[in-house]
């Protein structure tokens, strides 16, 4: 991934903003090119976050997790909107779906985080609970430049 191409989430536009306490959906990749440098918060050196790994950092008083999955970066608050569990410390895997023939499928591998307290599943690409858009983990724009990963606050 080029250093100047930020890896935001690719959620569909038009979905209403949830109650995300100031978080951004991270959808507008182009929006990160001219981000105010004062908003960049260093998280980890690029080389220290392998594909499939995550890092949880305390940034401005918030625990924020950054995941690298299939070359893309995603940043979410490590706080479950259900009962406050450390959602980003849970199992990162996929989830069961079903195709039109009624056959189980394994979907979204590497993009579903399950809160270790109660198992609520969220899509790390947009923070939304898999079952209900009423629930969402705040997400943050994340960018990688000059060998360093930053989230934007």
């Amino acid at each position: 991934m080029p250093d100047d191409e930020p890896a935001g989430a690719d959620a569909d536009a038009g979905v209403e903003e949830g109650n995300t306490d100031g978080a951004d959906r991270g959808t507008a990749a182009e929006g990160l090119d001219d981000v105010d440098p004062d908003q960049l918060r260093p998280v980890i050196a690029s080389g220290e976050l392998e594909d499939g790994d995550r890092v949880i950092a305390e940034i401005d008083g918030r625990e924020i997790a950054v995941f690298r999955v299939n070359g893309e970066l995603y940043a979410l608050l490590n706080y479950c909107t259900h009962q406050g569990g450390p959602v980003c410390e849970g199992l990162l895997s996929g989830t069961l779906g079903m195709d039109e023939d009624g056959t189980f499928t394994w979907d979204r591998e590497g993009k579903v985080i399950a809160c270790p307290w109660h198992g609520w599943e969220f899509d790390i690409t947009d923070g939304y609970h898999l079952a209900s858009e009423r629930y969402r983990i705040p997400t943050y724009p994340v960018t990688e430049r000059d060998g360093q990963i930053y989230v934007v606050l």
Partner: peptide, 15 residues
């Protein structure tokens, strides 16, 4: 229960 077990009822599109 469904909020913690969406994977068990993959056909559902709403609560």
């Amino acid at each position: 229960d469904y909020r913690a077990a969406k994977y068990d009822a993959p056909l559902l599109e709403k609560m």
